[in-house]
Design a protein around this nucleic acid. Sequence first.
DNA 1: CCTCCTTCTGATAAACGCTTTCATGGCTGA
DNA 2: TCAGCCATGAAAGCGTTTATCAGAAGGAGG
Lengths: 393, 393
Amino acid sequence: MTTGPDGVHLDVAQRLAGRPCHQHDLWLCRERVGLPYPAAGAARLCLRLLVCTLTGVNRRLHTRPPVLADVARVAGVSVPTVSRVLSGSAPVSADKRRQVLRAIQELGYRPNAAARALATGKRSIISVLTSDTTRYGYASAIRGIEEAARAVGLVVALTLLDGDDNESARVAVDLALGQPLAGVIVLEFDIQGSRALAALPRTIPTAAVSSAGQGRSVPRALFDDRAGARDATNYLLGLGHRTVHHVGIPESGRPSGRLLGWREALEAAGAPIPEIVESDETPRSGLRAGAHLAGRGDVTAVLCGNDEVAFGVIKAFQDEGMRVPEDVSVVGFDDHPLAEIWTPSLTTMRQDFAELGRTAVDFLLGRLAGVPVEAPHSTPRLVVRGSAAPPTR
Amino acid sequence: MTTGPDGVHLDVAQRLAGRPCHQHDLWLCRERVGLPYPAAGAARLCLRLLVCTLTGVNRRLHTRPPVLADVARVAGVSVPTVSRVLSGSAPVSADKRRQVLRAIQELGYRPNAAARALATGKRSIISVLTSDTTRYGYASAIRGIEEAARAVGLVVALTLLDGDDNESARVAVDLALGQPLAGVIVLEFDIQGSRALAALPRTIPTAAVSSAGQGRSVPRALFDDRAGARDATNYLLGLGHRTVHHVGIPESGRPSGRLLGWREALEAAGAPIPEIVESDETPRSGLRAGAHLAGRGDVTAVLCGNDEVAFGVIKAFQDEGMRVPEDVSVVGFDDHPLAEIWTPSLTTMRQDFAELGRTAVDFLLGRLAGVPVEAPHSTPRLVVRGSAAPPTR
DNA sequence: CCTCCTTCTGATAAACGCTTTCATGGCTGA
DNA sequence: TCAGCCATGAAAGCGTTTATCAGAAGGAGG
């Protein structure tokens, strides 16, 4: 049985009102009756009013959360003093500080973020624009961004890019910019990302996590996909394959780095350049692509746009009775968590999405602070496993 | 060559300043020189000042984004009129409306969300607390939440729960509550989620997306894992297996529904209840669990806590030379996107995470609006594929 | 011992950008 | 001519922070 400041039983009020009821409610009531804070003897009146309030007679009153002024009144100090205790911007006597902290505790006070943001002009949100949250690379990058943001006390807001037209990009951007943003990070792994980047006003600090080098002059944290694809292709050629087929993933408005790197490596080696097979980055489309390639009969090595596609491609080959890697070698891209335990285990180009996400935040913050930071950059690394081998014929 | 209102060439200014430069900059300059808005003839002075500003002589001035008062001044109307045009809260003559819209366009004005939130008391952020963004179920639920939130004009903020102790839950909660939140949704699939739920103050509207029924009396969008596990176990028993082994995933503070359902089904069937094998929800731990089970020699059917674990378990069995489903049947939980193309394709209990995420938002909003909404609820559905079959001996 | 100056603490007030209420002035229609 | 309506503007918040100011306490010098 907890007892309020004037002997009012909060539990009684609570039972009468049929809902939780806090010290704060009591004070609101006193205020309403016009009682100064430490006025004893009006407990009964307060209780009555409290119950009225709690039962909905005056809903708005009860709903109001405690504000700085409430804390100040309860602690018997002025509003700025409370603010100073909270922010530590100026010295406050130990005595008052204690009172203030106790009042905050009692009232369950939490600063109003909107008011704080308005007064300080400081922004504490980083908005992430992405077309997807579920696929491995996207999800990892988001995790990296969130971790880095949290480390410096920022919150991450997420906005999905639904359509791949300019209009829906604009809508998404408008929604995101409706918040007081410190900056924006766009996951520019696809056309939606590029569209969103284009739709962003130049006035807002922006960084992109990107797998392509060119485009609008926005600072980018970059995967050097091109070099990665070149390495992967050279690896397969080095195993003795005459050429390497490619299952492409959708391009973000311009030829993807993976495609370019693949073609460059083939050209450099003087190998024939097969027609590209398209996919939509899903395992299912990989299945279709694999079935198509299996039907051709002359395929011995395939570089896939990502691991999920590679899984589908491998599955399709196996369904057609071809063995991987004995009959055909498959190399993926990203190093998906399941690549390791796939059958056969998948040889792939590892990318550290989370790390690039983290560095993208640092990059953005550095630019915000006016410190020149070099654009982060990461080259995929070959992870040799069991899905690629020298050709058998 | 665009020309400013008094014949000032913005392009000239831009070239001189070496950075993009907008109409708005001009007006700021006029303001600084003390010119009323439509005052002709001071173009040259403005340009000079503009270049000073842009080149950093007065950085703050240039940095200031346009506010409602700027729009009002440019449009030649009062501040409330602009506000009315924006919110449509009161009629405005077509004439002024047009002027206002043009001014907004020219200045690239965007309302300040913090000020708006402060004035209206309306909150536009839903915070999602989760221990993970990358795993399938979590990522899908986040997507569902984001979609539903976006549909009603809300933004989703993401905060990861790092440690599984109370202290780090408190830190995460504090960070999230630092924003002006409309409400919080906790993904309570694990102990971190439960901790966060416990750390949330009762004053903030909260909903949980959960796979367990009990716990703190917070409204929950619920997966009926228990029924799902019961169904899965009964399915395996129905195929003729003497009993079913279980590879468990970490519990969120209390026995997981999956475990309970599994045990109930076995008890009801009078089947022996084998010891549970633990995993940490990763494929790799599934590998270990599978190796352990394969070593026992008497295992014919396994129900896994999720699909990723099931993948590992299957792989381990195969590595030990056991065939799935001929020698041992494996059933998963969740219907991971790769379950379909795994070898063998995985029989599993499908859960629609995205849909439950969406309904959780509706649920939260309904409660915010005071409309009584029934707690959403979803029962996993058996998807029969190729990884489970009758025992062969 | 009194006064003046310094130092430290707390309070008052003015922003921050937007919404909203209320009052006013110009119209229309009877 | 006057009531009534409508568009508009002035002003008062919303909950913080911060700059400025006043007052008290304390020490030193006369």
